[in-house]
Design a protein around this nucleic acid. Structure first.
Lengths: 151, 151
DNA sequence: CCTTGACCTAAAGTTAGGTTTAGAAATTAC
DNA sequence: GTAATTTCTAAACCTAACTTTAGGTCAAGG
């Protein structure tokens, strides 16, 4: 097997720790694009290891797969991404993370202000701030704030 | 309609902003326990407005419904919870939130250290810390770390 | 009394992020 | 040249947290 024939999906799975089925799923979601060998099997570049690593990290940060695809689209399509390329898109991740931390921190501070104040059921309570609620990615009641099914 | 006949599910829905179906679902999950009137319809106490409010807030904080049920079990069963009762269980929420913020902050710091370092694909990278990964509640690859289906 | 709106239950559908299964074809190992 | 692995596709299944639907009952108003 020549050096440049690429990685089979199983090898990529071992390198990344992902399940083979997950890698195929990510492909279906447009996160990674292997080529096919003569027999129709998927082959990956070594750079794809890093690409999938990035996917996993971004997931830990709370991004959805479509969001991650969006971020990854910031990478050059015509060549193997350099460390500098990764650096550039990581900055976007960092911003996303900052936002999440800030939201949670604000929520926490509100909780502190609310503990014992008895306002838990009042619409005025800071914890009911629609802004906060919209930003929290925990599932929660689906159609809470004008996010109606038929809108 | 006498004063003490309780709230119908629709009224509770309007007060909390939840969908009627969500309230029934929460009942199925053991988060709230109405009684039934002569005709078999659900009736709720006014204190249940606050109970559901608490559920919504806890969801924003990232707790699952089973976790919330657990927290709610800290309330007295034999009487209407006082502000002090709510205060007590809110402290647990606060701790949960602190933990999440800390995890995310640590993740962010690691990202800072990693941006541009080229380590994104190495198992040694701090971002691969199993501890971090296990704690992040974002879904991610399901059977990542010995969390196998048949274990 | 009768209609209309609110409520009931059970079951199926929905989304995200995957996994599992089944049967077939390609690769690798001996 | 087989036998054992891998890989392939398509479709079904899974969990969480709900919503929707279908068919029927309850409650309130005129």
């Amino acid at each position: 097997m020549a050096l440049s024939e690429g990685l089979a999906i199983g090898a990529l799975a071992r390198r990344t720790g992902l399940a083979v089925s997950a890698i195929r799923y990510y492909e279906a979601q447009g996160l990674i694009t292997p080529w096919r060998n003569a027999g129709g099997q998927r082959r990956y570049q070594r750079a794809d290891i890093r690409r999938l690593s990035f996917v996993m990290i971004a997931q830990q940060f709370g991004l959805s797969l479509p969001e991650i695809r969006q971020v990854l689209s910031g990478l050059p399509g015509n060549r193997t991404p350099t460390p500098k390329d990764w650096q550039k898109i990581s900055v976007g991740l960092r911003a996303h993370l900052d936002q999440r931390i800030e939201t949670l921190t604000r929520l926490r501070d509100n909780l502190d202000g609310c503990i014992g104040c008895g306002c838990l059921s009042l619409p005025k309570c800071a914890l009911y701030n629609p802004d906060d609620r919209a930003k929290s990615k925990g599932s929660g009641p689906r159609y809470l704030l004008g996010d109606s099914p038929d809108a």
